[in-house]
Design a protein around this nucleic acid. Structure first.
Lengths: 210, 210, 210, 210
DNA sequence: TATGAATGAGCTTTCATTCAT
DNA sequence: TATGAATGAAAGCTCATTCAT
């Protein structure tokens, strides 16, 4: 799978984030620290759901039952925390792209399914879609992470669908991802708005019809 | 034109903010107040362009050369101010709907043109699209205003296009407006994202193809 | 009296800081604001005595019975507050220089008396001498103020004493002031250390003896 | 040599930190601990130069490659660490006093040379002079150490110079040391201020002239 | 009616110090 | 004995909103 850049190196799935692989001799994180880190991730996820990803640091600390300093130790910036909270899902999404391409009847179908996955992810993350558009410098690494992980996948799917003649070529994955992300903003807060349906229309609009 | 609810009679055109009694002697302060209000609208418009519709109240007051209290007197909530600043353009947009329906070759064409108008409006209003999605209670009247004025127009256009068989029926104007609004968030801050193009795809997606 | 630079223009004594002269039509400060500002200066002076000039902003606000915002309104930076608190005394000191030169039997005597005045001032200002040496950028304007107001005066006295042959020439007022300031650090906290005496020795050391 | 009080037997030379029992088997950890302690002293010295003696504990630990807990184990207070870092130089300075008295042509000359040694020491210890004046209780033992070691030496030199009629009597070593220490504050941060010169003037001022 | 001074909650971030591992 | 994770008090600063003048 192509990777454009990436600040993290992390790479292919497992290894990181704890469960270190058998062979390497990585100084293992202290058990309590590990527990805290996980408590923190859980608490952050919960608070993010309730109050959005811009919730006060203190709220997250309180929910996790730790001091604020503990958050700063593990996640120096808010972006680090957000990334950590959603990393697994983002990775899963990224990995689903090639798989879908292999398993779906057509590239366009794969693209559609993949976008659905992304929407399912975003729609349940209160405030995340909004933050992904924020031009606040504090979120730069967050943007970079999403772009690094997902845009190449999207580009690939778009290219395949264009090659197969199902859609017009010329649309950048970045732009599509951003449009889709935008459509997910505020989803969930109003039952009269169904982001999935809107995204569906957008993806319909990609289709070549002639 | 049908109106669903409505917090403000607003409506028919020009400047009637406040319904002064007909024949009575108008108190002399009135002129000052009016002048202040207009200064305020101009200042707010300018500051909104520069810093977005969530710019600090103080900046607006300073630019208008009035005290912050004066803003609160004339526009008790930020939503009131935003509405006042954009009222003319929203009204113009609302009024363009029926006109387009009359002048365009097909209802779908009218819908498309009308959406374009709306996008042109939003894209140039720094931060407005974002605020239109905010679930912050302070913006409720703003939401209501936009919904009251524009959704019925959109519904009308959608219905006409559905009737003509150009698009599927079943999509609510509210939902479409919100999708379009979402796509406009953050437009202008990144040259790689063209909200107009994304909205174009979305509207393409509406089209019936069989 | 020569002035080297100066960010404040303030100038010759009275006028500023309230009591505006008769003639000019300066929009007078609101009475309550004035009262607050003065309460603030008083409170700051008191807190400075007790806890030094680096005391927490909150403490000063509490003592003055105002909110922290009020401090920031009147004195955007700590340096502004410190300057305001001590301005009268610094000005008085600056003005005493030429006067002493005129009234003392010799320039050296004037210098000595003037330095004594400065020491009397500093010694009673808990923490001020220390802050005058701090290389913290936040205190730059404070440094500048002291230097602008006092160094030229000192230079003048030094030059006069050198001209009269009482002291060697070649010492800059800035350096002398700084040495004197340093000698005043921590004075008052230990009865076994008498800054006045030490400064006396330093000034003795200036004298030409041959 | 007279000692007024004293928190630490310290004294006579080399490295004896901790009085290990004479004949007993020295526990094997001892070597580690010693090595750590020395690493710590080196690291602290380096960090003190770079960031001053009030540098964050963490920085020192990091530089030494140990945990912060290790610092607290060996040096419960910052003062203890500072003392340990500079002990050799302070001792050397203390010992130089009698030597100078023996070797210099006059007691005053010895005093002058000795003060110069002290200034040379202080001027190169970023932030040390400032801390020596701090009335922060945490530095009490530091003050005590300097006073215990150096003041008696200074007293001796002063007494000798007074006896020889070169200077007035009546000045306490404590006061002189403190004045000299004060003059060294901030030296090095501003090329326009030469602590050595100022101290020179101060010592000139001691001289009897009649 | 207009002003803008005052309020103070609210948020971030740092770092000395303790103590479980 | 060593580690470094965790704590949480402290402090700075901003800005919406109220209300005395």
């Amino acid at each position: 799978m192509p990777r454009s850049g990436g600040s993290d190196g992390g790479g292919s799935g497992a290894v990181n984030d704890g469960d270190e692989g058998a062979g390497r001799v990585v100084r293992s994180e202290r058990a309590d620290a590990r527990r805290n880190k996980e408590a923190l991730l859980g608490a952050a996820a919960a608070v993010f759901v309730a109050s959005g990803v811009e919730a006060p640091v203190r709220d997250i600390a309180a929910r996790a039952g730790v001091g604020v300093g503990t958050i700063y130790r593990h996640f120096p910036t808010r972006a680090d925390l957000i990334i950590a909270v959603y990393r697994h899902q983002v990775e899963a999404c990224a990995e689903a792209g090639p798989a879908l391409l292999a398993s779906c009847p057509t590239p366009y179908a794969a693209l559609r399914r993949w976008i659905d996955l992304f929407v399912d992810f975003l729609v349940t993350k209160h405030g995340l879609a909004a933050v992904l558009q924020s031009d606040n410098a504090g979120f730069d690494t967050l943007h970079a992470y999403f772009i690094d992980r997902l845009v190449p996948v999207c580009d690939r799917l778009l290219a395949a669908a264009a090659d197969s003649g199902e859609i017009h070529s010329g649309l950048a994955g970045l732009e599509l991802m951003r449009g889709v992300g935008n459509l997910c903003i505020g989803a969930g807060s109003d039952p009269r708005y169904d982001a999935r349906r809107m995204v569906g229309l957008l993806v319909d609009g990609l289709r070549r019809t002639d």
